[in-house]
């Protein structure tokens, strides 16, 4: 090797290269693009269906906010998020979060990353950051695809909020981004659960399925009134609670409750993933 390549730095780099590599591998995968494309199709289907129907949806008809779509195309994104939250978003997030460690283990690349040495704790952080980035990308994909198709098929004008106030287009775009942020935060707890399950197995499909099943179970439990006491502790409890962001003035209470609950899930399942992964024998 030429001499300038032989020099080993005396101090290690901060290690951002692994994170950027993780993001580039995640977003270069065809699977990731397929999932994002499927998510983008949801607002497009909604917008086209509403546009083609002869009568505009009445207030309270169909999914929440559907009636506002014809006022302001930006609301297509919010409507599509409401539709995606129970199943489609948890499905895609479950695939990415369940794949984090188990996917590397099944390819065998986990042993080469660890021999690198990536460091087990650093690898967990990087993997979780990748899953969180996907949550943001997934939510933004639905929102942006909705805004674009909405702007193309419907007027973009002042919008009436849930409180009855009317806000301008720029303000409604900010509200839409706030809703996207809320939904992204909502998915962080599920991502942490997926990361933990992913450290338990070498079979990525198993970890993905388990994560997705848990998200469905949590929503089923949340709908049983006999389990009232449990509801505030379910990670899915505040998933659809972003209506407060669509009032004037904005009420941040539900955003805060949701963020605190998700943070607790991240801490607990992050700690479990750490406890499992740092002592795990990597035999694949």
């Amino acid at each position: 090797m030429p001499s300038d390549l032989v020099v080993r730095p005396a101090r290690p780099a901060a290690g951002w290269a692994l994170l950027s590599s993780e993001l580039s591998v995640l977003f270069r995968r065809r699977r990731t693009w397929a999932m994002l494309a499927a998510l983008a199709a949801i607002p497009i289907l909604i917008a086209v269906a509403v546009r083609l129907s002869s009568s505009p949806p009445a207030a309270g008809e169909g999914p929440p906010f559907l009636d506002r779509v014809t006022q302001n195309g930006l609301f297509v994104g919010i409507t599509a998020l409401v539709v995606s939250i129970p199943l489609f978003l948890p499905l895609t997030v479950g695939v990415v979060a369940g794949d984090t460690i188990a996917g590397e283990a099944s390819l065998g690349t986990l042993r080469y990353l660890l021999v690198g040495p990536a460091g087990r704790v650093r690898l967990l952080f990087v993997k979780y950051a990748g899953a969180a980035a996907f949550c943001l990308a997934a939510t933004m994909t639905v929102m942006l695809a909705g805004a674009l198709i909405g702007a193309a098929l419907f007027p973009v004008g002042p919008v009436t909020l849930l409180s009855g106030d009317t806000v301008a287009v720029a303000e409604s775009a900010v509200r839409a981004l706030l809703v996207a942020a809320y939904v992204t935060v909502s998915l962080l707890g599920l991502s942490a659960i997926g990361l933990f399950i992913s450290t338990l197995t070498e079979v990525p499909v198993g970890a993905m399925a388990a994560t997705i099943v848990l998200s469905v179970v949590a929503q089923v439990l949340d709908s049983l009134s006999q389990l009232d006491w449990l509801h505030p502790w379910l990670f899915s409890h505040y998933w659809l609670g972003f209506a407060d962001l669509l009032r004037q003035p904005i009420s941040w209470a539900s955003f805060g409750d949701n963020a605190a609950l998700q943070a607790a899930y991240v801490l607990v399942f992050g700690a479990l993933a750490y406890g499992r992964f740092v002592t795990k024998d990597v035999l694949t």
Binding site: P9, A14, A17, Y112, G116
Partner: peptide, 24 residues
């Protein structure tokens, strides 16, 4: 125990990926 790589990346991209694990 044998080579292991990301099948969906090129040979060079695989090496770049695994190299980022080493902070030195």
């Amino acid at each position: 125990e044998g080579p292991a790589f990301y099948p969906f990346l090129s040979g060079a991209a695989n090496l770049q990926r695994l190299d980022t694990a080493d902070r030195y």
